[in-house]
Design a binder for these strands. Sequence first.
RNA 1: GGCCCGUUAGUCAAGUGGUUAAGACGCCACCCUCUCAAGGUGGAAUCACGGAUUCGAAUUCCGUACGGGCUACCA
Length: 546
Amino acid sequence: MNEKIADFLFPNIDKTPDYYEKMYPKRNLSDDAMVTRFGPSPTGFVHMGSLFGSFCDYIFAKQSGGVFYLRIEDTDQKRSIENGIDGIFNDLDAFEIVPDESARVGGDYGPYIQSERTEIYQTYVKDLIRRGLAYPCFLTEEEIKEIKEEQEILKTKLGIYGHYATDRDLSFDEIKEKIDNGEEYVIRLKSPGNPDKTIKIIDCIKGKIKFPEHNIDTILLKKDGTPTYHLAHAIDDHLMHTTHVIRGDEWVSSIPLHVQLFEVLGFERPEYAHTAPITKKDNGNIRKLSKRKDPEAKVSYYEEVGIPIDAVKLYLATILNSNFEEWYLNNQDKSIDDFTFTFDKMSVGGTLFDLDKLNNISKTYFSRKKAEDIYEETVGYCEKFDKSYAEVLKDNKDLMIAFLNIEKDGPRPRKDIAKYSDVKNEFSYAVDFMFEEENYSKLDSSKDYDIDMLERYIDIYNINDSKDEWFNRVKEFSINEGYSPNVKEYKNNPDKYKGHVGDVCEAIRVMTTGRDKSPDLYEILRILGKDKLRYRLELFRKYLNK
RNA sequence: GGCCCGUUAGUCAAGUGGUUAAGACGCCACCCUCUCAAGGUGGAAUCACGGAUUCGAAUUCCGUACGGGCUACCA
């Protein structure tokens, strides 16, 4: 009888599960190798939370000598957008999260796109029907809605189960008649669970979790014959031999269903690791990072604003394992690949996304980079997002590298750049025409500077001075101009002096850079040279006289 | 409503029955200093609440509150 129903419902399915079991044999890997997968819907671009998940998958597979593969979960056409798959590959490429197997590079366990696996799912479902563990259900949307309303009034569990599962034991003739009448149907699991019993599972991250057994006749195949996530998950992760299912914790409540599906299908169950979401505080409420509301939820955002991918990865690593940050602080010469990540150091609750911290990590990242590398990377960034400045950089390569190199040596390199886009702002005074355009606009105009004194300073400036010689000369100059050579002395006798050496430096700095804060003045003067100083003096004179 | 999960400073967090309750980001002060950034030193700030177990609880148990998730022919 069940055999008859199965054949009637799936006349074109001529294979059995056995066929696929043989087709996808166990992977030839060591016992502790982890097989992980990232299963995004092709909605165009990757969400920060998904990126975090795939980063996780990638790291655990890689460090255990296992396999990380990418499976496109496009069983819902409404969620798919054109070129959505490309978007996923692009974002993953940008972060160098490279799947060992995917729709692009292939692999022995494909197809890696769920919409191309329909026959596989139907084969297993046909077998389930044959074994009396699944059935066609003809309930209409309206009928289901009524059931739900009734259940809400009765305050009982929602869903199709028990006496609500009216189509559970339809005869072949009844089924045939309905289908001949053109009635649409889905295939439901004939759930064998007893909710009075509990199941226990150990999640790699959350630890022990207890649930009542699943007893709802969940939909396995939608009316168009495509599988729901649950069925596809069970079959794919079994056939592709996933050892660890790492996914967002919105799936925790589906565990009883999934456990049951693995049992019913006769599959060995993979380990589960449910990751906490990355959240954001919004008007006092904590919610998941949202692609629609939060620009920083989009992976492409970081590329656009110019935060280096490696800095973002460092941040992801610090929220992945709570002990990573301290380790990295003490092992500055090492990289993420050298750290051993574990599930038990993963956060169980949600993690608020901390842009301040990312910023700090990024500053540290820049401070450790060579000036030449920062230059090259910034050019690369600007060629994409700021073409005109890219040209400026290329025309002034040596000059820019010289500026980027200021205070790079020594144990405490400068930490003033957090993004590639900061370079333009921080060093706008480096290039003459930009300096002219800026024309001291960053200055607090209320202050007055002695332009004649500055002229006298340039006369005595010697580009060949060492740093000490330079500063001694500035001090000497200060005394001659009626300024105290050090701050303390000035503070003790403020009436004796016009100001102190710091004020002289400030005037020089303002004249040459158009701002009262800058990296080491000695270096800036040397890079610019005496002629440019004279030129800038004249610009400053014009500015002050206007 | 039902079922799960969680709650240590502003944020991320260490912690597994006895700790002065680590560390990082942020904040504040001071030092260094030609400014800023950095760096150094110090500081403010945390165990949601109530019971129980125990000589002793952030840690175990039970409640409560709050937060989050699920409760789709979406994933």
